[in-house]
């Protein structure tokens, strides 16, 4: 699956970057305006739901898509971020924005630690370790009374938060900014030396090592970044729902979506996870309203299996072939 990206030359990189950021900010502003015109709080919550998956899927893609290392612990990293925000608020009273920064730090460290212990081995050991990480973090949280244990923790949100129209809009805009930044970071990584090094690791790690790519260091950078961004995706979660318990924070749907979305959209490209997240996220949001949530997760599982079998390069792969 060596979907090599065309290297961006110095002359075109500037305008391209400008186009990306201009486009992203334009879409962001348009979304805010449209949702404000609709004026329904549900719109903000649905938007938030999709955008958190944009962050999660892009974060997964940095390690999984570029380097080919599968992280099954998205729910664990995300919950670590969410509970960091809860603990920080309880300990110091600092709210959302400092919570996001702290969550990035804690989850990033968690990623670095897991990576440091397992990334010297074959990739599958890292995957297994991340799979178990979620289970163990859940055990720790359930036993940790300070953040509510298995009963969960409440966060009381203010009703109004000027200059925003409502709390829902504020949450939506925060997540929107995070999503744009994450996609921007993922895109910058893709076009940088780090990204090319990671792609070399994915295609042939031994060959990459032999020609002098610092494989372990690059993998650790990617794991840390991936963990930190997943934590960022989770940090606003307690503020979004007003209540957080281990079952919700460690929900399987995060783990499966974090993998399904990039793979269905097209792993290894910055746009793939965005397409996957918007598509699957919207579908699930619509399906949760109309059919049962278990059934709609089941459908995601089937889509994942069918896509990896029949379209290993995801939706982005279709466009590539047509060109």
């Amino acid at each position: 699956m060596s979907a090599t990206t065309i290297p961006v030359t110095a002359e075109t990189a500037g305008p391209r970057n400008l186009a990306f950021w201009g486009g992203a900010i334009g879409i962001g502003v348009a979304l805010v305006v449209i949702l404000r015109l609709i004026g329904n709080d549900y719109g903000y919550f649905a938007g938030y739901f999709v955008l958190q998956y944009v962050v999660l899927a892009s974060a997964w893609n940095i390690l999984g898509g570029y380097a080919g290392y599968v992280n099954f612990g998205a729910a664990g990293f995300m919950a670590a971020g969410a509970y960091t925000a809860v603990a920080l608020r309880k300990a110091t009273g600092l709210d959302l924005i400092p919570g996001i920064v702290a969550a990035a730090f804690v989850s990033g460290l968690l990623g670095l630690g897991t990576g440091y212990l397992t990334l010297r081995l074959r990739g599958v050991f890292f995957s297994i370790a991340t799979l178990c990480l979620a289970v163990v973090l859940q055990t720790l949280i359930v036993n940790w009374d300070y953040v509510g244990g298995s009963r969960g923790a409440y966060i009381v949100n203010p009703l109004e938060i000027p200059p925003f129209a409502s709390w829902g809009e504020y949450m939506f805009i925060v997540m929107l900014v995070l999503a744009i930044l994450t996609v921007g970071i993922a895109r910058a990584v893709e076009h940088s030396r780090i990204g090319r090094g990671l792609q070399a690791i994915r295609d042939n790690e031994r060959a990459a090592e032999a020609v002098g790519v610092p494989t372990l260091r690059l993998k650790l950078i990617a794991t840390t970044l991936c963990g930190a961004l997943m934590g960022v995706a989770g940090a606003p979660l307690p503020y979004y729902s007003g209540y957080l318990n281990p079952d919700a924070a460690f929900s399987l749907s995060y783990a499966v979506n974090a993998i399904a979305m990039p793979l269905i959209g097209g792993a290894g490209t910055w746009a793939g996870p965005v397409i996957g997240a918007v598509l699957l996220g919207t579908l699930q949001q619509a399906a949760t309203v109309t059919i049962s949530s278990a059934l709609n997760l089941w459908i995601v599982g089937w889509m994942l299996v069918i896509f990896v079998a029949l379209a290993p390069r995801g939706i982005m792969g279709w466009f590539r072939k047509r060109r």
Partner: peptide
């Protein structure tokens, strides 16, 4: 779909994860 193509690392893992998920949610 995977072993023959030499894609067991990323796609194969994702496949088994999907199977696990389908069984459990089923």
């Amino acid at each position: 779909f995977f072993e023959r193509r030499g894609e067991e690392a990323l796609q194969g893992l994702a496949f088994f994860f999907g199977v696990m998920f389908i069984v459990e949610v089923g």
